[in-house]
């Protein structure tokens, strides 16, 4: 086989993807122990005019509760909620485009229109047992865990 037949770019891309995946797995596994700084990406995206909402994830014994802050989202109809495997996707439309006037250099000219976030859930949930309520521009999603329960007899 000659060099002409080897697509080095392809291998380079694949290796990069592989190492990124490994790095992310390590970060996920060890971030709770403080070994890695959390990833510092901005909470806004200039290209998509999208903001990332702040969320709290509460891992309870029987359920996972996700609370998402969605200021300037007015109606539940403006929110799209999807469960994709173990990822909860939140998309919401602001009641009007929001501009951070005077802030920064690039940011002050962007009209932000939506919130969007993908939340990796800490455990497997039952897609049939999900409830969501929206109150004062705060979304609360309760997801029941998939629990295989077997009663153990005490002798």
């Amino acid at each position: 086989m000659t060099n002409e037949h080897i697509d080095f770019d392809y291998f380079e891309d694949e290796f990069e993807k592989f190492f990124r995946r490994i790095r992310r797995r390590f970060q996920e596994a060890f971030s709770d122990l403080g070994f890695f700084e959390p990833e510092e990406k901005p909470l806004w995206d200039a290209e998509t005019c999208c903001l990332e909402p702040l969320v709290e994830v509460h891992n309870k014994p029987e359920e996972i509760v996700v609370i998402a802050d969605l200021p300037f989202v007015k109606h539940k109809g403006d929110i799209e909620l999807n469960l994709i495997g173990d990822v909860l996707e939140i998309k919401a439309k602001l009641k009007r485009p929001y501009r951070f006037e005077h802030w920064g250099t690039v940011q002050k000219d962007i009209d932000f229109q939506t919130f969007q976030k993908h939340i990796k859930l800490p455990e497997e949930v039952n897609p049939e047992e999900v409830e969501a309520v929206f109150r004062n521009s705060v979304l609360k999603v309760t997801l029941k865990k998939k629990i295989k329960r077997k009663r153990i007899e005490i002798k």
């Binding site: 959390p38 909470l43 909402p53 702040l54 802050d69 200021p71 300037f72």
Partner: peptide, 18 residues
């Protein structure tokens, strides 16, 4: 102006949570 405060303090909140 609660919503205004919530949308503008997201970065500080995230840093504080960390």
């Amino acid at each position: 102006k609660a919503e205004e405060i919530r949308i503008k303090t997201r970065d500080l909140m995230r840093k504080t949570s960390q």
